[in-house]
Design a protein around this nucleic acid. Structure first.
Lengths: 206, 206
DNA sequence: AAACTGAATTGAACTTGACTCAAGTTGATC
DNA sequence: GATCAACTTGAGTCAAGTTCAATTCAGTTT
């Protein structure tokens, strides 16, 4: 496990502040709709100072996406590591997917609203580096879910099916929520979590 | 049911050609990545001629989205109209959702990659009109699925659950495919359709 | 303390691509 | 062949992202 070192070292670096502000702006206003200069304003620096930390607005977006993917994968691993029963592991994984802060909800929204960015190659070096890394993390997360299903199937707990396809389905079902969910909305996240948890179990274990 | 009259009347109108070209470009290259002028080129007209038909690039996108939503709703209605058994209706609806041409696949991709556009209001009149109409169609499609579930639940065929939330889940699961599916990919759409059909039935009817 | 260093920051100019406008062309109809 | 609406264009404007050379700042060396 080579843990990446985020370049946030310098004590007067505003990288973290920029990322936080960008998540707020991109998440609430939308990536295209938010002016890059607005992010600078919110941090309290000039527009051009942003380019000291990120090569472009898109580079910042890709970084946010990669960080969120990393977080998702890590949380999945932590949560399911010590659960042997496949059904319980599945339940725990779904619950973990919805055990998130408001800020993380925004990151989810940003991530899934811009997944298409990961398909085509980018022109600049650093953007492309982030894209490739994010792309790999997507595959890693997909494999996380596939493996969970494979484990259950080989134990005879889940009926045999195309684990990869079904895993994509489960994952798709879970993340589809971030398209429409708003913390201010009428349905509490806990209720959603419960319903999706049940749905996933039925989908996989029936 | 007031059926909208698409302004494609004039015999030398290139509106349909523009829409078709835009679907190809936006679907393959992505909306942001494709230059508006490229669409004009592909149709064989000057860039400014586009503005005779669409107020803006975004207006064209919103129109594509609305048309696709209309198509989805119509297809759902046609398919489920004469099926009384809820389980069979559900199966038929899922199958219909994946019974699409290559061009329609692109439209799906475009639609679901830009759903977020429908949340915030637009500045210009015609864009806003398309947005509102699309927004209503989204709700209509959601209601289509919810009603299908409600019908099954009240008949005692489906266990009682939050039909609206479960409907959103089913719909989310189905459309999540358009994020990653490519006709050139390894998995044929028929296989995906079968797996999702089964998954939906288990999710809802178990 | 003065000199030095690299990180951080800035204002002004540049680039790109969406969009506007005034003027022109085309084709159906009378 | 005159008229009118639909359609098309060239020559621009404008907004927002980006580049770059010059500058400030904080910490380190001498």
């Amino acid at each position: 496990m080579a843990t990446r070192v985020e370049p946030e070292a310098g004590p007067r670096s505003k990288r973290a502040a920029i990322l936080a502000a960008a998540v707020d702006c991109f998440g609430e206003t939308g990536f295209e709709a938010t002016k890059w200069s607005t992010v600078a304003e919110r941090v309290g620096i000039g527009q051009t100072a942003l380019y000291h930390y990120f090569e472009s607005k898109t580079h910042c977006l890709l970084t946010i996406m990669r960080l969120e993917l990393q977080r998702s994968h890590d949380k999945f691993s932590e949560t399911t590591a010590d659960v042997t029963d496949p059904v319980e592991a599945l339940r725990a994984a779904v619950r973990a997917a919805y055990d998130v802060s408001d800020h993380e909800i925004l990151q989810m929204r940003i991530l899934h609203n811009h997944m298409d960015l990961l398909s085509g190659p980018r022109k600049s070096k650093r953007e492309e580096a982030e894209r490739v890394e994010a792309r790999q993390l997507v595959q890693l997360v997909e494999r996380d879910w596939t493996n969970l299903l494979v484990r259950g199937m080989s134990q005879g707990v889940f009926p045999l099916r195309d684990a990869q396809l079904l895993g994509a389905g489960v994952l798709g079902l879970i993340v589809s929520v971030w398209r429409w969910y708003r913390p201010s909305g009428p349905t509490p996240l806990s209720e959603i979590s419960d319903l999706i948890e049940g749905a996933c179990v039925r989908m996989v274990a029936t």
